[in-house]
Design a protein around this nucleic acid. Structure first.
Lengths: 351, 351
DNA sequence: TTGTATGCGTTATCAG
DNA sequence: CTGATAACGCATACAA
């Protein structure tokens, strides 16, 4: 049993017209008699006709569909971005196809393969943690596939990008920890190959330097899988806790690392902020429900999605090749809550 | 500038063969010389040829794609289900297209329109809270579109369904609250039109009845939008708290209601479980990090996705019309944590 | 073993 | 104003 749709042919046959006439009537073409048009339209509505977009795509060589590749949709940051993308896409008559790389390079390639071959008109992507080789993306780009990067961008590829000010976000958070009296900071980072990791780490180190604190290169641990595997976060965290100089505060540089870290500290019965300070990148609402509520660096995810989509549509619909690409940098929001309070400090608590 | 893919024609021209020969070589057809095959395959690999699935879909009248409709992907229950669906789909060479209804009937219809017209081979859906009229689904079903319902099913439509034992889940949770010494229970429910709401409520009421407690029909409040709007949850919660007999425990009958409720209680500075007991359906990991960790009724989401997909593939690939449909009922898991402790009771705390 | 012709659903082009 | 035809990329029945 197959799901058979109504086609133009069915209408033509039923009405004793040619397919071209029917097509014209449906498309409201200029040269068509009012009565024929009405006849066709009425009948089409009656039998619930809908054009087959597959056939349309084949013909028009466009699908009015944009592809999204993220590491995982269960990450609240990404699902917020997707919501932003969708809202703009739908308003412009586009649909979206979402694919998850799950931080795996091979899955990312497969997905990309699928999306492009499935004739998406453009691509919005935040590359996976594992991805080091961007040649396949480069190739699609060179072959003319419109691409917009967000969050985890690829520097080498010249196209529109949407990011947050990761440097400042990490810098401010670090400063806040220092202002709260913490001295022995450590950082939990994503894969070194990611743009966001480098930027955030730079902000972290700059803040330490500005305060005349020896950053001590060792006091950073990387998670190759971006926290997808808890054991990986555990190893990194253990490494940090075992440092010769015991850390008194942690900066977690990614959503999944923040929640993973929280989870593990709880497991180890290490109290935040009693035993150790913690601040991290996170878009998860529930962090505010923790006791005490966790301070976080929040990214304007929905907005990022919207902007990325607008840029992509611009790319897709521009007739001539675009030569000027822009990188939009949005601000992060530092939500300070009690969890990073240590010493008395002016009441800068928001929320 | 358009993204132009390599076609069979290009290969044929370059190699001085006909398109059919190339096609046969690529498809590893039986009647083809080894050398020609190798020639074609090598060249195809070299220029990075990939068949155009749009054309394939048009030809084969199938897209090897399954559509998913959920209310929102940011809900951890649904994103876990999606992961389950994807894992089976990919293993069988299928891709998925995800659409969000955001609990809106009109969006659900639009999405369905899109998915079906986009020639998905089948559909996995959990209907939106707002949806009361299932005729459009019924129509697709009658026209032969394979559909599998999960979680929020439509009783009237006869096809495969995957659900959890909502009755028992709610029953057990209610019993646990009663066993913990709570007496004045109230329930926060989703839209009445949803199957899950009716089942869960039935479990709740049955437990009360079994304990000889007057369920008091009034002590339930519904959220039409399933908690998508916090103010809606707030109204419902306020209504419950204002009951003549003050409630001492709340049963939240959906993921979004549980987190929304938590959020609001915090806002109102009502302590859980000090001031009021709370237990709810939730698949969010972070609830275990709360202080005290929240007791929840957890659904085997990933597994539901897997099962639904297997059933769907069965439907899609069966040659003859399926006449026997089944409804798989999975067990929920009641995770008891301190948040529902009130009176001394045997230590049944897990996790 | 390979080439030619046809059709999937649609629209653009050209003829009537 | 309307009808026939070709083309989008592919697979296949049929012809050679």
């Amino acid at each position: 049993m197959k799901f058979e749709a109504v086609t133009i042919k069915d209408i033509a046959k039923a009405l004793g017209l040619s397919t071209s006439t029917v097509s014209r009537a449906l498309r409201d073409s200029y040269e068509i008699s009012q009565e024929t048009k009405k006849l066709v339209l009425d009948y089409a509505a009656k039998i619930n006709y809908h054009p087959n977009p597959i056939a349309l795509s084949l013909k028009e060589r466009r699908s009015r569909t944009i592809g999204i590749v993220v590491s995982e949709i269960a990450n609240s940051f990404f699902s917020q971005v997707i919501n932003g993308i969708e809202s703009i896409a739908y308003n412009n008559g586009y649909n979206v196809i979402i694919a998850q790389s799950r931080e795996s390079f091979s899955r990312e390639m497969l997905n990309l393969q699928f999306l492009t071959s499935r004739s998406v008109d453009g691509l919005i992507i935040s590359v996976s943690t594992e991805t080091q080789d961007f040649s396949f993306l480069q190739e699609f780009h060179e072959r003319g596939l419109p691409i917009v990067f967000f969050d985890r961008i690829v520097d080498q590829i010249d196209t529109h990008k949407v990011i947050v000010d990761n440097y400042k976000g990490a810098y401010d958070a670090t400063m806040h920890l220092l202002d709260s009296g913490y001295r022995h900071l450590v950082a939990l980072a994503n894969s070194e190959s990611l743009s966001i990791t480098r930027e955030r780490l730079a902000g972290y180190q700059a803040a330490l330097k500005d305060r005349g604190i020896d950053s001590g290169g060792e006091r950073v641990r990387y998670c190759k899988h971006g926290g997808m595997i808890l054991s990986e976060v555990e190893d990194a965290l253990n490494g940090l806790l075992d440092e010769p100089v015991k850390p008194d505060a942690i900066l977690a540089l990614a959503d999944k690392l923040t929640t993973g870290c929280l989870r593990l500290l709880k497991q180890k019965k290490i109290d935040v902020p009693g035993d150790i300070g913690l601040i991290g990148f996170s878009n998860t609402d529930l962090t505010e429900l923790l006791e005490p509520p966790l301070s976080v660096i929040r990214q304007p995810a929905f907005e990022m999605g919207e902007i990325a989509t607008n840029l992509l549509l611009q790319l897709i619909e521009s007739k001539r090749p675009v030569t000027e690409f822009e990188t939009r940098v949005l601000s992060t929001e530092l939500l300070i809550r009690q969890s990073t309070r240590r010493i008395k400090s002016p009441d800068i608590v928001s929320l």
